[in-house]
């Protein structure tokens, strides 16, 4: 069979593309694919005291997590705590960072300094951030208590991380503080791509600030907003772990026992690696659901396509 020039060219280009992609693909397969498949394999196994019994129990770990009297209550509690944390943290990060981005997108004196200062929280490594907030919240000598006491807001030192009603929000605050800068800069980058002429046209139509924001800025920023939501949801579901580990260890009671903390406990404290892996897979599924919702709900084209399809 003789190939046409176009076919030969296509075949060469495709082969070249694969060759170029191979190193990256190998990296992904070794460091993401293999661990992923291996953790799925672990989730099908039975462990006793840290050692696999050799029994492949398939979905029993998943079933135990959802129904057993010992694990299920903890799982549902952690699921609820995680969802509460994620919704609040993501909403707060997005709103605050968008607000700050709108401010620093304007030209004013000290703008560059503000941008530099904003970077600081994100530049602090996670464990250092957690230890720092542990000191700030300390009920005996913490800076926060000292400050509130000196300005007369409180009469005696109080605990945030030891109070079941406040602990989760204390962690959320520390988390938001760290992750606002990251999203802010994504929004700033997005805002810089909106042409000035669009704003000028809106202003000529006598649109107010709020109207311009709703009708011009927000729609044009939607792709960035989607990306920020996806990234922040992934972060919020996972990256609060360091704060929980240092500040509360899941307590008081189960007030801050998030899924990430529960997975850690199941795997490394109880050495139930199979159950821990199963929980991690379930957490990944939750993440996928969130991301899917963002991509569909916030994407008018996909939304309308689905509606028309129905």
């Amino acid at each position: 069979m003789t190939l046409t020039f176009e076919q030969r060219h296509h075949r060469n280009t495709t082969a070249f593309a694969y060759r170029i992609l191979l190193p990256s693909l190998a990296f992904v397969l070794i460091f993401i694919g293999y661990p992923l498949v291996y953790s799925i394999w672990i989730s099908f196994q039975d462990f006793k005291y840290g050692v696999p019994t050799g029994n492949v129990i398939w979905f029993r770990n998943f079933l135990d997590i959802l129904t057993s009297s010992t694990v299920a209550p903890q799982f549902y509690n952690s699921l609820l705590v995680t969802l509460k944390f994620t919704v609040v943290a993501v909403a707060a990060v997005v709103i605050i960072s968008l607000g700050i981005a709108l401010i620093i997108n304007e030209r004013f004196r000290g703008n560059d300094l503000l941008k530099l200062a904003l970077l600081l929280p994100y530049a602090i490594p996670g464990p250092v951030n957690a230890v720092m907030w542990n000191w700030i919240y300390d009920p005996t000598f913490g800076v926060l208590n000292g400050l509130l006491y000196q300005v007369g807001f409180i009469k005696e030192y109080f605990t945030i991380t030891g109070n079941p009603d406040l602990a989760l929000w204390g962690i959320a605050f520390a988390y938001i503080w760290k992750f606002v800068p990251y999203s802010t800069f994504l929004f700033v980058a997005g805002l810089s791509t909106i042409p000035q002429s669009v704003y000028e046209a809106a202003q000529m139509d006598c649109a107010g600030t709020w109207r311009i924001f709703r009708k011009v800025t927000l729609p044009l920023l939607m792709p960035v907003l989607q990306m920020v939501l996806v990234i922040q949801t992934i972060f919020a579901l996972l990256m609060h772990f360091g704060l929980v580990f240092v500040l509360t260890r899941g307590g008081p009671g189960n007030a801050t026992s998030t899924l990430a903390w529960l997975i850690y406990n199941e795997s490394f404290t109880f050495t139930q690696f199979g159950r821990g892996a199963a929980m991690a897979i379930m957490l990944s599924l939750i993440m996928i659901v969130f991301i899917y919702l963002y991509l569909v709900v916030l994407n008018p084209e996909k939304r309308s396509a689905r509606t028309q399809g129905a």
């Binding site: 945030i160 030891g162 509360t248």
Partner: peptide, 21 residues
């Protein structure tokens, strides 16, 4: 006993006691 004991380990208690609290 203050509610903050839920946020204190024996080491934190040690610090507070040394401080005369």
């Amino acid at each position: 006993m203050p509610p903050k004991v839920m946020d204190m380990t024996a080491v934190d208690v040690q610090q507070a006691f040394k401080n005369g609290d």
